[in-house]
């Protein structure tokens, strides 16, 4: 029985670790400036936790086999514990865990407390049951007024976010179902939700933030690679949660300008 347990625990440990190390299923390739940082922090945490995992499971398997009951003659070490050992491993784990935490906090701080870079592209993302809409303020750089009464999800586009046409600033606002942003420029993102909580999740950008009704949450990130990336909703928002899906297109600056101009022209 001891051997069977040893085999089972070690097998589980080996297989679990193998698929992590082999990266059979792993993060998508990072395409934003902060992705490298986050991945690095993940790697450090992963290595440390991996060592603890293998050591603890290994010891568990080994002990149950090595100290299995082999009859009454087998000596048992009568002990109530060891205070010195307790202190040592308490301090060690405390240092390990708190240290890890402090290492990662810099990325969190820069993402949330620093203002977006000068010249960042302003985009407003609005979540509603069950779609994402992205609004660009247009040449005047100002978002027009929106009104809850005017929102109409079935109409799509500008009506979906409830843009008030009577406001001068809203004349040049562009609303799109797909998010276009230029590469290597920071995005100054404002997140809103119209009905329930949604969460804008772009795995490749290592970006996720809940869009909370009643709040406008500002975030920023910088894509460093062109391409098409998928957007998912990560917060349960109702029966269509699974199909609340969007696309992020990171394009060159020229293409972005061209796209904006064509949308403006379409609107006139």
């Amino acid at each position: 029985m001891g051997l069977a347990l040893l085999a089972l625990i070690w097998l589980i440990t080996f297989v679990s670790t193998y698929f992590f190390v082999a990266k059979t299923w792993w993060f998508p390739v990072g395409a934003s400036a902060s992705a490298a940082w986050i991945d690095h922090q993940f790697a450090v945490t992963f290595i440390l936790m991996g060592i603890v995992f293998v050591a603890a499971q290994g010891a568990l398997g080994l002990f149950v086999w090595q100290y299995r009951d082999r009859g009454a003659t087998q000596p048992v070490h009568y002990s109530h514990g060891n205070a010195k050992l307790e202190i040592i491993w308490t301090v060690l784990t405390a240092v390990l865990f708190i240290g890890l935490n402090l290492m990662g906090s810099r990325v969190w701080a820069t993402e949330r407390f620093d203002p977006p870079e000068v010249g960042a592209v302003p985009v407003e993302a609005t979540g509603l049951q069950f779609a994402w809409y992205f609004r660009y303020p247009g040449p005047d750089g100002k978002y027009g007024r929106t009104k809850a009464e005017l929102e109409d999800a079935s109409a799509g586009g500008e009506s979906a976010v409830g843009l008030d046409p009577s406001d001068a600033a809203s004349k040049d606002d562009i609303v799109s179902g797909t998010m276009y942003i230029p590469v290597n420029r920071e995005v100054d993102l404002a997140l809103r939700a119209q009905d329930v909580i949604h969460s804008l999740f772009i795995p490749s950008m290592r970006f996720k933030q809940d869009a909370v009704p009643g709040l406008i949450i500002h975030m920023h990130f910088k894509p460093i690679q062109t391409g098409d990336y998928e957007i998912a909703c990560a917060e349960l928002c109702g029966l269509g949660h699974y199909k609340m899906h969007g696309m992020l297109k990171v394009v060159s600056q020229e293409e972005f300008d061209k796209w904006l101009a064509s949308k403006e022209a379409e609107k006139q």
Binding site: F63, V64, R68, D69, V76, E86, W89, T90
Partner: peptide
């Protein structure tokens, strides 16, 4: 949580485990 795990392993160590 880690203390508890270590102590469980310490309990098994040099025991006479009945399955």
């Amino acid at each position: 949580s880690a203390i508890k795990t270590f102590n469980w392993l310490g309990t098994l160590y040099q025991g006479r485990v009945r399955f």
